[in-house]
């Protein structure tokens, strides 16, 4: 039995996406920005699963399967880049990573 409507699920997903978006926009720590990105991915998967369930198809669920795989690869590469950056610059604050700006 499902008690909440499709609107509620999509609204919740949009809210989570907005929270992650503001994390990306306002935080200065690269690691927390990265967590905001992951939050946005998870929010989109919630919408996909809800659409899939309410329409009785499996396609949304399979796409979530792929998104999980992509996210795992993305996290591995992104964190490797952050570590390489920290090795050369000794910081992870985006304010101080401005070599391309000047």
């Amino acid at each position: 039995m499902i008690h909440a409507g499709l609107n509620t699920y999509v609204l919740l997903s949009a809210l989570l996406f907005a929270i992650g978006f503001f994390g990306v926009l306002l935080r200065k720590n690269t690691l927390v920005i990265f967590m905001g990105l992951e939050l946005m991915l998870v929010a989109s998967t919630l919408a996909l699963v809800a659409f899939s369930r309410f329409n009785g198809t499996l396609d949304g669920n399979v796409f979530v399967f792929f998104i999980l795989t992509i996210a795992a690869a993305e996290v591995a590469v992104g964190l490797a880049i952050i570590v390489a950056l920290f090795r050369s610059r000794r910081t992870v604050q985006v304010d101080e990573l401005n070599a391309l700006k000047h």
Partner: peptide, 13 residues
């Protein structure tokens, strides 16, 4: 959002 009643759609996942 128009959606069929999910309690009739099968839980395929």
């Amino acid at each position: 959002l128009d959606a069929p009643n999910p309690n009739y759609a099968s839980g395929v996942g």
